[in-house]
């Protein structure tokens, strides 16, 4: 046990001496063999982060990103063998990382990219057919109290920065420096089949969908949208839900009924 703990501690701390009792197969210095192994561990974790955060990487450049990711790996080694989710704490780390402070939107860019990975791996759910949704119009009086359950992959990011425009500029090789980063933007991330869509939304529409995701009924969600923007376009917000095939269930229980509706 002690040997294992010692080995693990030495893996993520270059200042830590080579664990005692190691022997190299060819009689070479175990310390240098261990250093190679330690390096490979860290490099592979940094590589995985680079794959998760390609736009974050492109924004700050390879050298900066890898150095930052390396610090993250030391501070937050993976707790699970699923490397897909190792980046969960990365955006918060970036936000607190002093050398990145001159790119204040970097953390939200990382947040957006992590949400895309989360959406990719989120549970499947069949969208309701449009006919089932259209049937709701037969009894409009029930609409305000209905809860629309969103696809498990759906997530909203509301940023003080133009993270959607910046991210999009990196997708089709447009010049990101043409984007004014200081414009607040809201983004919807949702998967349909195997495709993760990243959609810019009006802030009110984002508030509406965020409220649906919290399990609010339609009237309260629409109200949440209106409180962000008096000109909230509810029809457009519904159209987004339909177009992205986001509605997977309709819960009609009274307010007191407990419906588990997160993520």
């Amino acid at each position: 046990m002690n040997t294992q703990a010692d080995f693990a501690a030495a893996l993520l701390d270059p200042a830590h001496p080579c664990p005692a009792g190691l022997v190299a197969w060819n009689g070479s210095d175990p310390a240098s063999r261990f250093a190679v192994y330690r390096n490979n561990v860290v490099v592979s974790l940094v590589d995985a982060l680079a794959d998760t955060f390609p736009v974050t990487l492109a924004t700050v450049g390879d050298a900066f990103f890898r150095a930052m990711a390396r610090e993250f790996v030391f501070a937050h080694p993976p707790r699970s063998p699923l490397l897909s989710f190792h980046g969960r704490g990365f955006a918060d780390f970036v936000a607190a990382f002093a050398p990145a402070a001159c790119v204040p939107w970097l953390a939200d860019l990382a947040r957006l990219e992590m949400l895309r990975v989360e959406a990719y791996h989120a549970a499947d759910a069949e969208p309701l057919p449009a006919a089932a949704i259209a049937a709701l119009l037969a009894d409009p009086g029930r609409l305000p109290g209905l809860r629309l359950r969103c696809h498990p992959s759906a997530a909203i990011l509301r940023s003080s920065w133009a993270v959607h425009s910046l991210w999009e500029a990196h997708q089709d090789d447009r010049d990101p420096s043409a984007v004014d980063p200081c414009r607040p933007e809201a983004v919807l991330i949702v998967r349909s089949g195997f495709e993760v869509a990243t959609v810019g939304l009006p802030h009110a529409g984002a508030a509406f969908i965020a409220a649906l995701k919290r399990g609010e009924h339609l009237a309260a969600a629409a109200q949440a949208g209106q409180s962000v923007d008096g000109g909230f376009d509810l029809a457009l917000a519904f159209a987004t839900l339909l177009h992205r095939q986001m509605i997977v269930a309709i819960d009609s229980g009274p307010g007191g009924q407990d419906n588990e509706l997160h993520t």
Binding site: I133, L136, L137, P140, L143, P144, L218, A219, A222, L234, A235, L236, A237, F238, A239, L241, L242
Partner: peptide, 8 residues
């Protein structure tokens, strides 16, 4: 709500 959903 019905109007918005209908037009959507």
């Amino acid at each position: 709500l019905a109007l918005a959903l209908g037009s959507a």
